[in-house]
Design a protein around this nucleic acid. Sequence first.
RNA 1: GCCGAAGUGGUGGAAUUGGUAGACACGCUGGACUCAAAAUCCAGUGGUAGCAAUACCGUGGGGGUUCGAUUCCCCCCUUCGGUACCA
Length: 861
Amino acid sequence: MLYDSKTCDKKWQQIWEKTNAFQIKQNSLTTKNKNNNYYVLEMLPYTSGSLHMGHVSNYTIGDIIARFKTKQGLNVLHPIGWDAFGLPAENAARNNGLHPWDWTFNNINEMKKELKTLGFSYDWSREIATANKEYYIWEQKLFIQLYNKNIAYRKNSKVNWCNECKTVLANEQVEDGLCWRCSSEVQISSLQQWFLRISNYSQELLDGLDTLKQWPQRVIQMQRNWIGKSSGANVVFKLKNPTTKQNITTFTTRPDTLYGVTFLSLSINYKELNNIITPEHKDDVNQFIAETKAENAKQDRKEKEQLGVFTGSYAIHPLTGNNIPIYVANYVLDEYGSGALMGVPAHDQRDYGFANKYHINIVPVIAPPNTQDDDSYELPYTEHGTMVNSQQFNGQTSQQSADEIVRLLESKGLGNSEITYRLHDWGISRQRYWGTPIPMIHCDSCGIVPVALEDLPVVLPKDVSFEGDGNPLDRHEEFVNTTCPKCQAPAKRETDTMDTFINSSWYFLRYCDPNNDQSIFDKNAVDSINPVDTYVGGVEHAVMHLLYSRFFVRILRDLGYLSFDEPFKHLITQGMVCMTSYKCPNHSWLYPHEVDNDRCVHCQSVVTVGRAEKMSKSKNNVVNPKEIMEQHGVDSCRLFTMFAGPVDKDIQWSQEGIEGMKRFLGRVYTLVVQNKQHVQARKYTTTNSEISNHLLYHINYTIKKVTNDIESVAFNTAIAAIMELVNVLYKVDTKTLTNDDRKLFGYAVHSVIELLSPFAPHICEELNEIIDGHTDSYQLICKTPWLKYDDNHTTRNTVTIGVQINGKMRSTITVSADASEDEAVKHARQDSKILGYIDGDGSTLVKTIYIKGRILNFIVK
RNA sequence: GCCGAAGUGGUGGAAUUGGUAGACACGCUGGACUCAAAAUCCAGUGGUAGCAAUACCGUGGGGGUUCGAUUCCCCCCUUCGGUACCA
């Protein structure tokens, strides 16, 4: 190895920093420059303590694009910051006695140091941390505006409650229905909490998905299903012996199946339930409810058997007047629809199972199309078809009948058409310390009153105690006790803080104007470079973070802060970095370096080698980026994570793999340094010699391939193409070349550095300096323009195509790229193997299929 | 459970959108260089049979469409991500 990655990495990182190579000028963020501005963003890191390989791969993807777009002449914004609020900081405080503030900012310092040794092209002057009051003041101001517009509101909602710890538990803190800390049983209790009306935007968030042409289809699909629009109808069932004035309203997406309703089922929390159960069924139903609640608290997501119990009451079918038994069932959701379902066992899988179990009637009302009267068909039949057993609708198609049945119900006042969404309002209250304080005050006489704007920010106090139960803010007298802004009477401050997803729903806008202390951000600056052109992050954020950000941009738009609809134009979701785990029978999980030849280095026991899975500290299957950088250099590591596979797939860490990358970089270094004179004398010329044509093809083909592959985020194949070019250049014997061809060869070698520079920026800067450092025109390679290609030289003149007999590969022929079918057939007929099949005994050629440049297929009989 | 993905040699992966399966790497084998090793360079490398030419098999499993399927359709298996208070 001729070059020393350690000193080289550091040298260029310092030069980039000293020359402010990646800072973008604030005055360039004006809508006049919109076409020349480009925004590359990676999801902001949570301040967990140290970087892991997932971060490295995430930020490398963004960095490659940022460097590529810069070389293409665009004005690139590439910022970084910290997602600093959240539960883990509070857990650290309880476990280690470290204040969340200290824990978080120590972590930021450490991670920042590590990030800087990776040489990413960040504009560090725009760094933000969401736990700073300069950041969260704007969330508080916004919250008050949303409260005044009735987008923020309070309602009762359920939480996991641990009676032992006297605290609300996150879902993550509940294990098998038990508190993770004290293992006591978790209760579900109800609290007044703050919500944002994201449901007002359900339809718009759904429609917006159609405009996101550069998002992965799977993410679009997940969001679409998450919003979960269904069109259908409300159907009202009156009670047979009314014990309450309330009718039961059910929601159905299939009003066409109404005549097949043979039971109703209610959720265990149905509000009128007590009035519906008959006295003789009370004990059964109450026992069932208790069992179901216990079962639900377990939170395992295994398949649960559909269970129910009869209430003793009957409803009246709105069209037939039949008696319909009413059940309570464990599979009815109370958040969706009205908490009541109409059961149509003949045409719904779940209802069918339920009816069979409890011996309820099954009445088919839709037959598959073209079914004869005496045909039998399998139930449940869930498709559309022809109406049967449905009075005047018999014989019609079910699609047509659906509308007519709804109209009939409407005329009787027993139903209406309705659109529902699965998406429900966003609960943003957290009964926790480490978050943005919700700027509200509870006054005995005035009720809920927003904090006066001039009193913002409501600063999160530092002097809190984590000894004791619940939210530390509740015990902070100074914080809690305040005066009502309206009547000046003593009042209590809201102690709930905001969900951290709020912090990450708008940070990308603040980067555009991070130091503004007059306003959340300058509208012109934000409009000049948004939506974010390329956004890179994990697919685990497909729904929540990415949906909340889309919601926030719409809120801000409607308040006049910006003038676009969608936050992210192109979304790249990257996979996880995985690693094999090793377990020793005596020493539990081992680090990779504790394993030698599948044996534990401590006790020589044979270790269990697990499948590669997400790197996690608990399994010791982690590699520390810091050590890798020191051992192998930044560029090898970047190259490995990008070469290991497509960016959106999980990659498996491998020691051998990174050594291979190091070897490749060594080859590049040697190639350039050994041919220094030719590269310095480089010139793009053509002499029409064989070698000249050969080089021209490879130069232009590779530039085109790498350019297109970066545009389509296929970094693994881009790197492979550069490797191929390097292999080709190694085979050239420069001694036999003419002077002109040698200059072209120099150009080819130089193009390797240019093309590789977004991927391996440090070594390419070094080589660029070795070649051109002494010249007047020298500039950093991160600033030199991206290479152009000549499309006349990106394809070969001759191609080798396959020759098939009846679709089976039998031979290949080499013909000119645009050879006609006749020419190709003529060539193939000179091949004795082929000839044997075509003109062999008893075989006749019946058809020839020729696809230019691809395949020649003879069909013989 | 529900929603969304993935499955190709010993390994990671490639395959211009239905057209030569295995590019590029890792590993392995052999060779060159060396007193030797490392490093480097060169060559070979899907499986089975064969000295070879070649033949057959082969993209998680089973079926289908097609002259031709890793690619399109149906069924199944396994693994992973999300599931609204982890971020």
